[in-house]
Nucleic acid binder design. Structure first.
Length: 492
RNA sequence: GGGCGCGUAGCUCAAUUGGCAGAGCAAGGGACUCUUAAUCCCUAGGUUCGGGGUUCGAUUCCCCGCGCGCUCACCA
């Protein structure tokens, strides 16, 4: 076991302390930011710098060290920006130069000196004094290849962020995405609200919950699978435009597009319907793409994804007809739909209901083909217990999902505000649960009471934030878009 | 959960048919005033993921376990 290097660093740490230097001082002296200095002197040439000899102090982590006897170059990193530091024996007090020689890659230091340009015309801080700000006891990953082991990258994300510029970019883009989303919604008059993560009854999505225990109330509770039913209560309460960005938890499979803990943005707008929410979705994602990627065209792993313009709005049954030749509207039960699928030359799934069979057709034949941003509308009513029925065809609902790169980014509907209809839908869900669908919605009396008091016509939308980050960040796995994806314990 | 693959030094990777486990970077010592993957000389660093088995001998072959990746299923 190579405690070897750590021991060498520990020895230097002890030597520092012995010589009266605090290796972890509480205060940082005056300093400028690296990016400010780089920008300010970007156009100033070597002779001018030499004449002015501007004094400068910077702080950062040493990420490279190249030593030549009486000369040494360091590279220091601060908030994603680096600058070169030179240490020349002729320009430094003997003690200061000796100290500079024993700093390690990984240490945080503050450097006071004078700016100049080297023979290769690189802006460089020529050190007069180096102070230890924080001593590093473990080595950074190898500099050329970085940290490539996926497991190590997730378990020690801090090393990944330091060693791999791409990882840092994704982290930054995630933050920019959230900021742009908030900015957009705030600009539309939405209030950001917070609703419970621990819920006595879960709802708002078709998923299996995590369960936990509320000790003070001696009560079983669930981690939310969705914010939906609480946000609608707020609309009932007269908060006409609300949104929440937060973590939802679904106790289900992990895949490159599913993480059991994920980030959802849900927003609700009174006196709007699903058509309004389509406009909102399109405007919002265009606005986010512009802010995060500088335009509506995004290069996703070599594929051009364009958020610009008006996106197609295709009823689900039309999309299925187009891709499979099956007209689901011409059938009304599982048996006839199965027959139609076979007649079209396809193998039907073993879905037990008409609605689920429609959904399977869509998932298999349509969804993976939806590369560019696309709205798919009017889902089967049985799959959408919280959505208003379509005026034209009550087998379907006023709902859409938005897709890109073959995955679902969001889901929205004209919210069901008829308490009688809502109760019947819940009762169907309860029946489905009794029939073995352990992801069906439980009946929420408290929510029904709220609806009975009256909810205005309302449009609601949920956006999978991690998936948007996948596209804007150019990563193929949702775990790459999440800073600390869940991992099993390393040693059991 | 199934299938396939991977697991060797801090990091990135080698190791012939089963025959003393190696290199680069990082580290320690030395040389060096213009490097930026610095260079050169020397040195040290290993429970080859863990446990069993086969064998004179296992990083290598077999079995079990653990972790990770890909994939299928699941996740409307």
């Amino acid at each position: 076991m190579s405690e070897y290097e750590r021991e060498a660093r520990r020895e230097r740490l002890d030597e520092l302390r012995a010589s009266g230097v605090d290796p972890y001082p509480a205060r940082v002296g005056p300093r400028e930011r690296i990016h400010e200095v780089s920008e300010r002197y970007a156009q100033v040439d070597g002779p001018t710098l030499e004449a002015d000899a501007p004094a400068c102090a910077l702080a950062g982590r040493i990420v490279a060290k190249r030593s030549f006897g009486k000369l040494m170059f360091l590279r220091i990193l601060e908030d994603g920006e680096t600058l070169q530091v030179s240490c020349r024996k002729q320009e430094m007090e003997p003690d200061a130069f000796a100290f500079a020689k024993v700093v390690d890659v990984g240490d945080f230091v503050r450097v006071e000196g004078v700016l100049w340009r080297t023979k290769t015309d690189e802006l460089t801080l020529d050190a007069r004094v180096i102070e230890m700000l924080s001593k590093s006891l473990r080595p950074l990953p190898e500099k050329f290849h970085g940290l490539t082991d996926v497991e190590a990258r997730f378990r020690q994300r801090y090393l990944d962020l330091l060693a791999n510029e791409d990882s840092r970019k994704v982290a930054v883009k995630r933050s920019l995405t959230l900021r742009a989303m908030r900015r957009f919604l705030d600009g539309r008059g939405f209030l950001e609200v917070e609703t419970p993560v621990l819920q006595p009854l879960y709802g708002g999505a078709h998923a299996r919950p995590f369960e936990t225990r509320y000790k003070a109330y001696d009560q079983n509770v669930y981690l939310r699978i969705s914010d939906e039913l609480y946000l609608k209560r707020l609309v009932v309460g007269g908060l006409d435009r609300v949104y929440e960005i937060g973590h939802n938890f679904r106790n289900e499979g992990v895949s490159k597009k599913h993480s059991p803990e994920f980030t959802m943005m849900e927003c609700y707008q009174a006196f709007a319907d699903y058509n309004d929410m389509m406009d909102l979705t399109q405007d919002m994602l265009q606005s986010i793409a512009k802010e995060v990627s500088g335009g509506t065209k995004v290069d996703y792993l070599g594929e051009d994804i364009d958020f610009g313009g008006d996106w197609p709005r295709i009823p689900m049954h039309e999309a299925i007809l187009d891709r499979t030749g099956v007209d689901v509207t011409a059938t009304d039960d599982v048996a006839s739909l199965r027959a139609a699928i076979q007649a079209a030359g396809h193998v039907p799934s073993d879905a037990p209901t008409w609605a689920q069979l429609v959904d399977d057709l869509f998932s298999e034949f349509v969804e993976p083909e939806l590369r560019q941003p696309t709205f798919i509308t009017n889902h089967p009513v049985a799959l959408s217990p919280l959505a208003k029925k379509s005026v034209e065809d009550p087998r379907f609902v006023e709902r859409f999902e938005v897709f890109a790169i073959g995955i679902e980014l969001g889901n929205a509907f004209s919210e069901l505000n008829d308490p009688i209809d809502q109760r019947e839908r819940f009762e169907e869900q309860v029946k489905a649960q009794a029939d073995g669908d352990d992801e069906a919605h439980p009946l929420d009396e408290d929510f029904l009471a709220a609806l009975e008091h009256g909810m205005p016509p309302t449009g609601g939308l949920g956006i999978g934030v991690d998936r948007v980050v996948m596209i804007l960040g150019g990563v193929a796995n949702i775990r790459e878009a999440i800073l600390f994806p869940h991992m099993r314990p390393e040693s059991a």
